[in-house]
């Protein structure tokens, strides 16, 4: 996507929502006809339909799904923020991958690595890092296994 495209103001189609999911290194999703979004909020999973009240929350690592008409799409997101307006949802995620983009083998390796790291005696900082890594891997495995190969 060129820089110019990005600057174009986007407006949702009537009765639908605009959904943008951006990660630091790229834009992952951009759609102007989304009917429903389900996201992993830090205080619990929440669903959003068009006309939702303005809402700003942090996200935890988990599965994010959205629906365009009858098609559900699934992504693994790792931490971030969701900003919700009446007809738009912006997700700022530290990492976001569509189910089809996830390398299941790699995720499993990452999971084992993180589990091993957790068993060792670690300092607080490293422990937290490994824990985060493990959650990330688990989410990715979950998304890839359930929704990856379709």
């Amino acid at each position: 996507m060129s820089d110019k495209d990005w600057n174009k103001p986007m407006v949702a189609e009537k009765g639908k929502m605009l959904l943008e999911i951006v990660a630091p290194s790229r834009q992952v999703v951009r759609s102007e006809r989304v009917d429903e979004v389900v996201a992993p909020g830090s205080e619990g999973e929440f669903g959003i339909l068009p006309g939702h009240a303005a809402f700003l929350t942090t996200l935890k690592s988990g599965v994010l799904s959205y629906r365009e008409a009858n098609d559900w799409h699934y992504l693994a997101v790792d931490w971030g923020y969701a900003e919700v307006g009446p007809n738009r949802v912006i997700i700022l995620a530290e990492g976001a991958d569509r189910a089809s983009e996830i390398d299941l083998e790699e995720a499993k390796v990452a999971k084992e690595r993180a589990e091993k790291a957790l068993q060792e005696q670690l300092e607080e900082h490293d422990y937290e890092k490994a824990r985060v890594e493990l959650l990330r891997a688990l989410t990715r495995i979950q998304v890839a296994e359930r929704h990856g190969q379709k």
């Binding site: 943008e20 951006v22 630091p24 834009q27 923020y81």
Partner: peptide, 20 residues
């Protein structure tokens, strides 16, 4: 490409901070 891909995130984040 990487510069261009990184701009949206930075911009959106600034917008969120501004709103906050």
């Amino acid at each position: 490409e990487r510069v261009i891909a990184a701009r949206p995130y930075a911009r959106k984040m600034l917008a969120v901070i501004a709103n906050l």
